[in-house]
Amino acid sequence: MAEEAVDVDEAVFDAVAGIPPGRVSTYGAIGRLVGVGPRRVARALSQGGGAVPWYRVVRADGSMAEPVRVRQAALLAAEGVPVRDGRVVLDAVGWPD
C-alpha cells in the first residue's frame, strides 16, 4: 500500500513538473492525467511537492488554497499569470489545453 502511494505521488509530481512556466493547471486536471481524484493530488503536493512547481496548480475555479495563497499569487505573478478578483484566469493560461 505504501509503495502504491509513493507511485501516485511520483506520478503527480511528474505531471506537475510538466506544466510550463506561465501556465496553470487544476487539481482535477492533474488528477485526470494521473488517474486519481483532485484531493489526492492536493495531498501529494502538500506533503512533498516542494521540488516541483506546486504553485502552478489551483482549484477548479482558479482560486488558491488559503494557507499558501499569498506566496502562490506572488510566484504566479512573477510568471505573468493573469489573476482577476483573486482567481487565476484559467481560460487564458489553463494547462493542458
Score class of each variant (00 low, 15 high):
7 D>K: 15
85 D>S: 10
92 A>F: 12
64 M>Y: 05
14 D>G: 12
14 D>I: 10
92 A>Q: 14
93 V>K: 08
37 G>T: 08
60 A>G: 12
57 V>W: 05
26 T>L: 06
41 V>T: 04
97 D>N: 15
94 G>N: 11
55 Y>T: 04
4 E>R: 15
76 L>H: 03
26 T>K: 01
32 R>F: 07
95 W>K: 07
2 A>H: 14
56 R>H: 09
8 V>C: 05
60 A>H: 12
52 V>S: 06
51 A>F: 11
14 D>N: 13
16 V>S: 03
17 A>V: 09
79 E>F: 13
12 V>F: 02
75 L>W: 10
83 V>H: 07
70 V>C: 09
38 P>F: 04
76 L>R: 04
68 V>T: 14
78 A>C: 09
58 V>H: 01
6 V>G: 08
45 L>C: 01
5 A>M: 12
13 F>V: 03
4 E>K: 15
52 V>I: 09
28 G>T: 15
17 A>N: 13
41 V>E: 02
89 V>R: 10
38 P>S: 11
64 M>S: 03
56 R>S: 02
29 A>V: 01
40 R>C: 03
16 V>T: 04
56 R>Y: 03
31 G>N: 01
69 R>F: 02
44 A>C: 09
56 R>M: 04
28 G>P: 04
56 R>V: 03
83 V>I: 14
61 D>V: 06
34 V>N: 00
64 M>G: 03
28 G>C: 09
37 G>H: 07
71 R>I: 13
40 R>F: 04
94 G>F: 10
96 P>K: 08
71 R>T: 14
24 V>Q: 04
53 P>C: 05
79 E>H: 13
16 V>Q: 01
90 L>V: 05
34 V>E: 00
30 I>G: 00
67 P>F: 06
13 F>G: 02
6 V>Y: 13
17 A>K: 12
71 R>C: 12
59 R>D: 11
12 V>N: 00
39 R>S: 11
6 V>T: 15
42 A>V: 05
62 G>Y: 01
70 V>T: 11
95 W>G: 06
71 R>F: 14
12 V>P: 01
38 P>T: 08
95 W>Q: 09
25 S>K: 05
92 A>L: 14
96 P>E: 12
47 Q>P: 09
18 G>W: 08
35 G>K: 06
42 A>K: 11
12 V>W: 00
23 R>Q: 10
46 S>G: 09
27 Y>V: 01
11 A>V: 06
4 E>Y: 12
78 A>D: 14
19 I>N: 01
55 Y>A: 06
14 D>Y: 10
89 V>F: 08
91 D>H: 13
71 R>S: 11
1 M>W: 14
76 L>M: 07
23 R>W: 08
59 R>F: 12
27 Y>G: 00
35 G>E: 06
79 E>R: 14
82 P>F: 07
42 A>I: 04
71 R>L: 13
86 G>P: 02
63 S>A: 11
70 V>G: 08
72 Q>R: 14
41 V>I: 06
35 G>W: 02
54 W>Q: 07
84 R>N: 10
75 L>D: 07
30 I>F: 01
21 P>F: 13
14 D>L: 13
53 P>V: 03
85 D>V: 08
18 G>V: 08
54 W>P: 00
30 I>L: 03
42 A>H: 10
58 V>Q: 02
62 G>M: 05
28 G>Q: 11
90 L>F: 10
15 A>C: 07
17 A>G: 13
41 V>Q: 00
